[in-house]
Write a protein that binds this DNA or RNA. Structure first.
Lengths: 169, 169
DNA sequence: TAAAGAAACTTCATATTTCGAATTAATTAT
DNA sequence: ATAATTAATTCGAAATATGAAGTTTCTTTA
């Protein structure tokens, strides 16, 4: 029934709300703004990413991404490395300080989920995973994939591993 | 395995990302800011709600809630009615214009999900719903329940139905 | 191959948002 | 009564967001 889809969406909204509160709480503890934290997470997920991709992932304008990256770079949480194959671009990556900041605060949602998940029977775990992946496939569109699943830049990953002298931008 | 919990969280992040992009898209179409849209949805869910509860639900500071409500009231998307039982507070509710604005734009995620959900077998629907509700219960904490599930104000609902002269605030 | 076109990022000016702290008003507790 | 709480607001500072215009670097194409 239509009814069940609505129930699903309500549950989804509860999850969404929880995630939102979670990111705000984590941001507060780390001393980062919500957007800064989100960008930091995006960078962590991808290990290396360009400003454009950050803008798309975070859902902000390129100009805003520039400002956010600049701020994070000033805090020494991310570093920038000019791309050699396309010198208009550069790669943003987490510094050690950035990693440390990101993990300085526990992630309540993550922990809570993992903890409770571990306690349920195996077949239920499998069911939940299957359902979540199914739902993810239902709602995620190509344009809004998580940076980690976006492969439009992997052609350049080899470059990231190359031993360039790589001065900061 | 620990591994499976991580897979769940990854799927969850894909869903969250999709939802985030979705709310931004809907906001853009309606001409509302993301937060305004979220507040409007919260108000719709509860039919009547106080600024404090909006702040908690939306995850913003009280001062921010005031500003958001003021803006929405200026647009005539919400109305305010002073509470009689506690005259510091007031009730926020959607106007007809607010309802119209909220539904003027289609919700791609909602539609996409409903459409695909309708196509899958009954037992799978049931499985997905069960899984989603389970996950929602895992991650949502009492403090961050969706307004609709928060019953701390129902004692006052009768008041909302009472025939007070109810001038705007 | 030279010029036009497009893309990535920045800068700038401006508008909006957000929040903390202090404030007012109303309620509740002592 | 008086003190302590609570709900909401005001205000000022800082953060964020964006469009438009500009720079540099690719990419096309004539």
């Amino acid at each position: 029934m239509e009814d069940r889809a609505v129930s699903c969406l309500i549950a989804l909204r509860r999850v969404l709300s929880a995630a939102d509160h979670n990111v705000r709480a984590v941001a507060k503890v780390t001393g980062l703004s919500v957007q800064q934290l989100i960008v930091l997470r995006i960078v962590e997920d991808t290990t290396e990413i360009t400003p454009m991709m950050i803008a798309r992932s975070a859902g902000v304008a390129p100009a805003t991404a520039t400002a956010l990256i600049e701020k994070l770079a000033q805090m020494d949480y991310v570093s920038r490395r000019r791309s050699q194959s396309d010198r208009r671009r550069y790669w943003v990556s987490l510094t050690e300080a950035g990693k440390a900041a990101l993990h300085s605060a526990p992630d309540p949602l993550h922990q809570k989920f993992s903890e409770e998940f571990a306690r349920i029977p195996d077949y239920e775990q499998a069911m939940i995973l299957a359902a979540l992946e199914r739902v993810a496939n239902m709602v995620s569109t190509p344009g809004e994939t998580l940076p980690g699943t976006d492969e439009s830049h992997v052609l350049e990953v080899s470059e990231a591993l190359g031993a360039e002298t790589a001065g900061p931008v």
